[in-house]
């Protein structure tokens, strides 16, 4: 069921602040059911802050964030996951006080149809082999897989993934690309912050380009070639 259907996420006029710094200046975007959308842009453009704002992990936010038709701008942080959100932060946030399996089992289920532990170990065999190791003893790639696996187990069907390929070897990046395609086939909705445009381009349906806390461009997959030059200017690749 890879059909693109209802609106899963709609953000209008989102402003976000960390203390005195005003980071996001009126973001508008939508993500439809089953879509894989990327946020492109240079470091500091506000892409990670956009994801963290959706999870209510910033100092202050104003505007509107609609998840599955529910307004969440005034919702406490711990309630947002239960709308079916899964967040994979840039720093991966694997817990060193827990082993791999405890890390995997940690987040409570937010929906009933999450992947079973068997399915997860099938998708990430390395995690099974190292399930008794301390979480932070894993390699960077394994930690990334663990960070992704633990939100798949919860049944989250809207995934916010922040720089999941950062610093990883090409072979692992390739594996992650295959995993994302599988998740897309399952009908999951994915909002991906990505620096590695070559990784994102072939798998994404749409791209938003951010600069200085604004969305400056929206590019559909079929427009990539036509808008290549403009993208180069914004991303400096």
């Amino acid at each position: 069921m890879s059909t693109v259907g209802d609106e899963k996420l709609r953000i209008s006029d989102l402003h976000a602040f960390y203390g005195e710094s005003h980071i996001l200046h009126g973001i508008d975007m939508t993500v439809m059911q089953g879509e894989l959308v990327t946020l492109l842009g240079r470091n500091g453009a506000g892409r990670s802050t956009t994801l963290r704002s959706i999870m209510n992990m910033v100092g202050k936010r104003t505007g509107s964030i609609n998840i599955n038709g529910r307004e969440t701008i005034d919702m406490p942080a711990h309630k947002i996951a239960h709308l079916g959100m899964g967040f994979c932060p840039e720093e991966r946030a694997i817990f060193s006080s827990l082993n791999v399996e405890e890390n995997l089992m940690l987040p409570p289920a937010v929906r009933s149809d999450g992947m079973s532990v068997e399915e997860i170990y099938e998708m990430f065999p390395n995690l099974y082999e190292r399930r008794m190791s301390q979480g932070t003893r894993l390699s960077g790639g394994e930690q990334q897989m663990l960070a992704l696996a633990r939100i798949l187990r919860t049944g989250a069907n809207i995934l916010l993934l922040d720089e999941i390929t950062e610093g990883l070897a090409p072979v692992i990046v390739k594996t992650l690309g295959e995993v994302l395609l599988k998740l897309k086939e399952r009908g999951l909705t994915i909002l991906l912050v990505e620096q590695n445009f070559r990784f994102a381009a072939p798998i994404a349906d749409r791209h938003y380009v951010m600069e200085h806390g604004h969305i400056v461009e929206e590019v559909h997959a079929h427009e990539l070639e036509a808008k290549a030059e403009m993208l180069n200017t914004y991303l400096g690749v």
Binding site: M57, H78, P89, T154
Partner: peptide, 11 residues
Amino acid sequence: ENPSMMQAFGI
């Protein structure tokens, strides 16, 4: 270890 991440998990 990481309270804000636990909040993001829905706890």
